[in-house]
């Protein structure tokens, strides 16, 4: 085998393999150098193998991805039905009129331009705020420290169906999210109600965590926790079925999900 390579090729190979070295000259872009870079990337993957990332990191990665998706959907929605099409529809004849006849004066043009700008400002000023993406909010909360995550267990009520999911609760933030899958919807006169058992209030009733409905038993539903009182030490979370107006103290006739007991 010839021991000598073309000096340019040697430089290219060094720039790929030892690209991480601070003294190394950056790779010069070329089809051949890209081939070597691709081979190096696959080799790196083969050497690396698979190692499960820590749970906190996995949560942060998911949160960043969901955050990206939420922003991306807003961007795409704005691009599809955003300001420009709406502006055009509110100023009919502006373009065609200008095209059909020469502009009569700068004043008219300035007026129309000002009108368009005002409409644009009005559109953005009156546009409702984007809804909070609960998946993103839940993942962000999960990524913070000191957060409890408890799995749901089905309660004794036959209304519990095949409930699965979890509770994510931050004592520091006094906020959290319930995730449900397989919890059958209840009738129009009923609602689910969350109860938080506060370990620091042993002689008190559970704290009301809010009313909510499930509309899709097959899908995944995320519900924000709405604790009516501060919870010092959340020991358990219980979901009951109540009247649609909710109750102050549950008789626990239908307990459909329990977490943490």
């Amino acid at each position: 085998m010839n021991d000598h390579l073309d000096p340019q090729l040697e430089l290219m190979l060094d720039a790929v393999v030892f690209a991480h070295e601070a003294e190394q000259q950056p790779r010069v872009e070329s089809p051949q150098s890209r081939e070597f870079e691709r081979a190096a990337a696959l080799a790196a993957a083969a050497f690396a193998g698979a190692e499960e990332p820590p749970k906190a990191l996995a949560n942060r990665l998911a949160a960043s991805g969901l955050q990206f998706c939420a922003e991306r959907r807003r961007t795409l929605a704005n691009a599809d039905g955003g300001a420009r099409p709406r502006l055009a529809s509110t100023t009919p004849g502006f373009v065609t009129g200008a095209d059909r006849a020469p502009r009569r004066s700068g004043t008219l043009f300035g007026f129309l331009t000002g009108l368009a700008a005002a409409l644009l400002i009005w559109f953005f000023a009156t546009k409702p705020p984007a809804p909070v993406d609960l998946s993103v909010a839940r993942q962000q909360l999960l990524a913070s420290s000191g957060v409890q995550q408890l799995e749901w267990k089905a309660g004794p009520s036959p209304l519990s169906g095949a409930v699965k999911g979890d509770v994510v609760w931050s004592e520091a933030e006094q906020t959290g999210y319930l995730t449900f899958e397989g919890l059958p919807p209840v009738g129009p006169e009923q609602r689910f109600q969350l109860w938080i058992v506060d370990g620091a209030r042993k002689d008190s009733d559970p704290v009301d965590g809010g009313l909510f409905a499930i509309t899709d038993a097959a899908g995944r539903t995320i519900v924000p926790i709405d604790a009516k009182l501060p919870v010092a030490k959340a020991a358990a979370f219980v979901v009951t079925v109540e009247d649609k107006a909710g109750v102050v103290v549950s008789k626990q006739k239908h307990v459909v999900a329990i977490a943490g007991l």
């Binding site: 991480h20 790196a44 993957a45 050497f47 690396a48 193998g49 698979a50 190692e51 499960e52 990332p53 990191l57 996995a58 990665l61 998911a62 991805g65 969901l66 990206f68 998706c69 939420a70 922003e71 991306r72 959907r73 961007t75 795409l76 998946s135």
Partner: peptide, 27 residues
């Protein structure tokens, strides 16, 4: 993912995060 589909994030991470983490840990 480019279309903003959240379900794809979970699948992508389930498929590839261990490989990237493995390389980062070594690097």
């Amino acid at each position: 993912i480019a279309a903003g589909e959240p379900a794809a994030i979970d699948k992508f991470l389930a498929k590839y995060s261990s490989m990237v983490w493995g390389l980062a840990r070594r690097f």
